[in-house]
Nucleic acid binder design. Structure first.
Lengths: 224, 224
DNA sequence: TCAAAAGTGTTAGATTTACACCCATGA
DNA sequence: TCATGGGTGTAAATCTAACACTTTTGA
């Protein structure tokens, strides 16, 4: 063979930071490791990259394994490559974050995988460098939500403005003025008001809105 | 052995997008590949990750090999992991960008490695997925320079305000109003005016400034 | 003396922030 | 009838953007 031989190969894995918005809080899925090394420690869900699949494909597959959902909104966080990050062998891991609507995620499946939704502000110590991954993922998704309308991925397809506001408050970690928030939303014509009313959270009922991805076209000045 | 065995290993490489600012233009280093596959094609400079070094360390080492400089400002761009991205073998590459002051970079060394400075707006087709790497790196460094004062890494330690402005114009790809620019700079107390005058670019001479990293403390509202 | 780059403030417009009350309804 | 969350506008303050002339000096 060639040139490549002189160098050493490594195992490659992917680790997923799966964000969900539930009970007014931004959460991620974590579970206790079921294998050595690190058995019993809190950990992100991950998997190995196979020889015949791209790293992105490995991440999609891993997300599908865990959630049963395809075509999730997913972005790469980066490569984590310290020599001793995995206590067993040399494994370099590529972290990805995904945004999911918790209602679409089957509770049964969650339990089968022994995963729990944990408030991002209360993440315990995790296996290996997973806390670092979460930290970076959080910063990236925060940035992303502020500049592109992808927050909808964390909500049901119909949502109230209060839900949307609470989501942004949770993501940014600050309270937002209701009137100013609604003013800005009103200017975004890709957030459409429907005729439907949600009565589940108040007696009066709140209008349901929907994101129209057809109408949205990339806007470098988007800011929320 | 364990568990790891069932999975396949891959080669890992790093590729470097090295930014420099010269003749009023933002440039990167590229050279013609000297090995197969892809011999003769324009390419980023890269190298393999050794078994006993972290991915970051491999990037630092590779940058040092090429530039003779250590402790360069360097950030990870991301992992590029399509199955067939390398026409020879399965190689996953982690891209990094670095900012260097072209004056500190020895011309001899550049020639030895057969690298040339190429205007970022005129990059030809590159080997494999290197154009994609450059595109992402450029976006990231643009974002970085706009929100953290790291542009100084691309300039001599003493610089004029005109140089600084030209740098930002090249990075953002737009002209900037001189008075507004200087107004903003004046408010940044970590950009210190020195007593020195640079006469090389005008008869009158321009004051030289210096970045004081002691005085700068991280400011989430930084914007340039 | 003139060409070439350095240096300097003001104003209008746009954007952002702060802020408080009425509405509709089910219990 | 009242408690609860839904819904609405205005004014002050801040930030941003546009804009033109004087200074210095070497050739």
């Amino acid at each position: 063979m060639t040139y490549y031989n002189e160098h050493s190969k490594v195992w490659l894995s992917v680790d997923c930071i799966i964000f969900g918005f539930d009970e007014g809080k931004l959460k991620i899925l974590i579970g206790k490791r079921k294998m050595d090394p690190g058995r019993g420690e809190w950990s992100l869900y991950g998997g190995f990259v196979a020889g015949d699949e791209s790293v992105d494909a490995a991440a999609s597959r891993t997300l599908f394994e865990l959630t049963g959902l395809r075509n999730l909104y997913m972005r790469q966080v980066g490569a984590f490559g310290n020599v001793d990050r995995d206590p067993g062998e040399r494994v370099v891991s590529i972290a990805y974050y995904a945004l999911i609507n918790v209602n679409e995620y089957d509770e049964e499946l969650r339990k089968e995988h022994d995963q729990i939704w944990m408030d991002v502000n209360e993440i315990p110590q995790l296996y290996s460098d997973h806390n670092e991954m979460v930290k970076k993922a959080r910063k990236m998704m925060q940035q992303k939500l502020a500049h592109e309308p992808v927050g909808f991925r964390l909500l049901p397809s119909l949502f109230t403005l209060t839900q949307l506001q609470k989501l942004y408050e949770a993501v940014k970690g600050e309270v937002i003025d209701k009137r100013n928030f609604r003013k800005r939303i009103k200017e975004m014509d890709f957030i459409e008001k429907t005729e439907l009313i949600d009565k589940s959270s108040s007696k009066r009922g709140a209008s349901l809105y929907r994101f129209n991805k057809r109408i949205y076209n990339v806007d470098p000045n988007f800011k929320l």
